[in-house]
Amino acid sequence: MELRQLETFLTIVKEGSFAKAAEKLEYAQSTITVHVQQLEAELGVKLFARQGKQMQLTEAGKVLWEQAAVLRQRAVALQQTMREIITGEAGQIRLGAIEPTASLRLAPLLITFSRTFPKLRLALEVGNAALVNPRVQAGELDFAISSPPEAQTGLTFEPLFFEDLRVLLPAHHSLVNKEPLEATDLKGQRILLTDRGCGYRAVIEKALLSLGINPFSGIEMGSIEILKHAVQGELGIALLPDIAVTPPPSQTVVRKLQGVDLRVPVGLVSPPEECHLGRPQQELLAFLRTHLQK
């Protein structure tokens, strides 16, 4: 069933004859007849019956008349949606992101982007790298803003910026006034870690273990916000992204750690064939590259 056939059928009923419908639609009358014949053949019923010089709807025709306007409206809406998807004005984007990028960097950008493309449906999933990167690999997310994926995933990684990690200390901790604060000063300290699979934790473990410092205290938490509260409560110290502790939470002090590289690359994690992404996804990728790349 084609939209033009429905349009022809509705016009015949509205105008009262094949001839008037042909005039209204600027078709040859033979074209009107063909459209009706095609529609009747597809549905397997007669839609019109001649009574004298007039064409009357059959029972099947009356049923189609009741539904045809709705079908046409839905078809027109679908065509419009398809055009908007092609132009990047509509569609669905499934995006993953790690914290604090999701809350502090990405959220304001998504608000701006959504105002520019109000018809786009956007789903943001927040989790650590071990959660969002495999979901990109599985096709459940279009792409993610995350720390680098594992090599065996086959995903591509495009660095956008670095998250610099800082030491968050309770306000009265013995290391608050230590100058300079060296990585070796963390020996014997209770270091509160994020959960396994977090890109920040991986960098912390690699850096400290290389210096002979054991970062494992037996306490790990899956939320940066909870870690900040734990430091406020003097449970221990934490190494957290600078953006997440600027300004420092009350009753805490932020220090830069000397003698160790604690930078975490964050960027676009996407399927190897980015060209397979639709126009809406490509629009958002370009927008994020422009506003996040440093």
Rank of each mutant, 00 (worst) to 15 (best):
M1K: 02
Q5M: 05
T8R: 01
I12D: 10
S30M: 10
S30R: 15
T33H: 14
E42W: 11
V45F: 05
K62V: 13
W65S: 13
E66Y: 04
T81S: 14
I85F: 03
G88I: 00
Q92R: 15
I98F: 00
T101F: 09
T101L: 10
A102G: 00
S103Y: 05
L106A: 00
T112G: 15
T112L: 15
S114Y: 08
F117Q: 12
L124V: 04
N128R: 12
A130T: 08
P134N: 08
R135T: 07
G139W: 04
I145N: 03
P149S: 09
A151R: 14
P159V: 05
F161A: 09
F162V: 11
R166H: 11
H172V: 06
H173L: 02
L175T: 05
E182T: 13
T184I: 07
R190D: 09
I191W: 01
G197I: 03
C198L: 05
I204G: 00
A207H: 08
S210R: 00
L211Q: 14
L211C: 07
I219T: 11
I226V: 14
I226A: 15
H229R: 15
L235H: 15
I243D: 00
V245C: 06
P247I: 10
R255V: 07
D261V: 03
L262G: 04
V266K: 00
E274G: 05
L277C: 06
G278P: 06
Q282F: 11
L284F: 01
L285D: 02
